[in-house]
Design a protein around this nucleic acid. Structure first.
Lengths: 256, 256
DNA sequence: GTAGGTATAG
DNA sequence: CTATACCTAC
């Protein structure tokens, strides 16, 4: 079973690329982020024609997340639903083939002294409480998303340059660590402890050609799924060519 | 000798289409309208690589006209240069192979009661005076352009619907007629007196699929060139496919 | 650099 | 419907 996550950076601008990638990669489940459109504007027909059902949590211009799956996603839950007044469409959860799948788009955080940075740290706390409230670490659980945090030095092209910058501050890494402490394992890092693989490259300054990237897109699995992990990687090719997303898809394989 | 006119509706947005069309149609001279860019932003390199020289009169956002030619255009004159305070880049003239070529983008006229409509009628008068001042009817002269006027009933898909609408009011047709009275012959209509051929289809309301068009792009030739006319038509295919201009190229052939 | 929104123009 | 400009965000 193949599960992937991809920040598409506008699903309408990237429709053809998404369809081509679905066709070639053939994931069973895909977590999408940054749809940048409402549910009504999502290209549902085309995705259906490609063989996928879709659970959607859309928003105009910003955010927007989805779970695509060959089998119909069940028990769809949109947002953190924790009573906080929050319009951001950053989370959707659904059950596919007995696995609870969460597609998450963590706040970017803008700059360390901004309200967005505070919101980001709070959001991570809220997501940890979401897991505590609704799930148990021994359930089969997969969280795929753009976490907007590089967890370790190896996940940046230049840790000294990035140290203290948004996406790589201590507080953000701590917040991610506290989320993982629920009982989550970073699928890629588990299988490839020492291999540097980025998932995002800035559009600016020739980030991709120079391979100046970060690994900020991760798939997290709960304990019962760890022994079933058979593969994990990034589809770097999807970042190539014309009009790509700034993120590449990240995937894992589970033994059936 | 093949001479064409094409309102490209942004030469930058249409660069690839323009180059492909130049490659397949192989005109000796092309009058372009609605470049929608300054001379500095014109894709001069690519056009040169395709085998064409360019005489340019650019403008940011609106208007902008050019003459492309396999031989270098000589004695380039930009604008009407009649002392009227007018920033619109709607006219360029140059000599190619002994023929004086004018590329013209007539004002659209918006609505009959608008200042733009008045400007359009005046512009036609100014262009007639331009010809009177600078040229003689027995010179070899070709005017190619988007004239924003359908000359006759046959040049609209529904003359009753269009009667009195901008692009088909009596005043506009009169203004065009007065221009032609300088001694100009509509090349397409001369060779095909009874055949309906449109050059423009509105992007809206499925104008092209339903063939709801107008013939507002014409090539006019002076008397010495009329006997040399061997062909004239519209490249309807250039309006097909993705991201087309709303205009198709119009061309004529002259015996050498 | 690459999106989206709004507005204007055709 | 398809462009442009200017604005904001990442």
């Amino acid at each position: 079973m193949k599960i992937a996550t991809w920040n598409v950076n506008s699903v309408r601008a990237r429709q053809e690329r998404l369809l081509e990638w679905l066709k070639s990669a053939q994931p069973d489940v895909v977590c999408l982020q940054e749809l940048k459109c409402t549910e009504a504007d999502f290209p549902l027909e085309a995705v259906r024609d490609a063989g996928y059902h879709a659970a959607l949590h859309g928003q105009k211009t910003y955010n927007g997340v989805a779970i695509l799956a060959k089998e119909e996603p069940r028990d769809v839950v949109k947002g953190l639903s924790d009573g906080v007044d929050d319009t951001h469409a950053r989370l959707i959860a659904a059950t596919v083939k007995g696995i609870r799948v969460v597609s998450a788009y963590a706040p970017n955080g803008q700059s360390v002294d901004s309200p967005q940075y505070e919101y980001k740290l709070e959001w991570y706390g809220r997501l940890r409480r979401y897991l505590d409230t609704r799930h148990k670490p021994d359930e089969p659980l997969v969280l795929g998303g753009d976490w907007n945090v590089a967890p370790e030095d190896i996940d940046t092209y230049d840790p000294k340059l990035w140290e203290g910058q948004t996406l790589f501050t201590l507080k953000e890494r701590d917040a991610l660590q506290r989320l993982r402490a629920f009982g989550l394992t970073d699928a890629y890092r588990k299988l490839h402890p020492d291999t540097q693989r980025f998932s995002w490259w800035d559009y600016r300054n020739l980030g991709f050609p120079k391979n100046l990237g970060l690994r900020i897109d991760h798939l997290y699995v709960s304990a019962p799924l760890v022994p079933r992990l058979t593969g994990a990687d990034t589809d770097r090719d999807a970042r190539k060519g014309k009009q790509p997303s700034d993120h590449a898809p990240v995937w894992l394989e589970l033994q059936d």
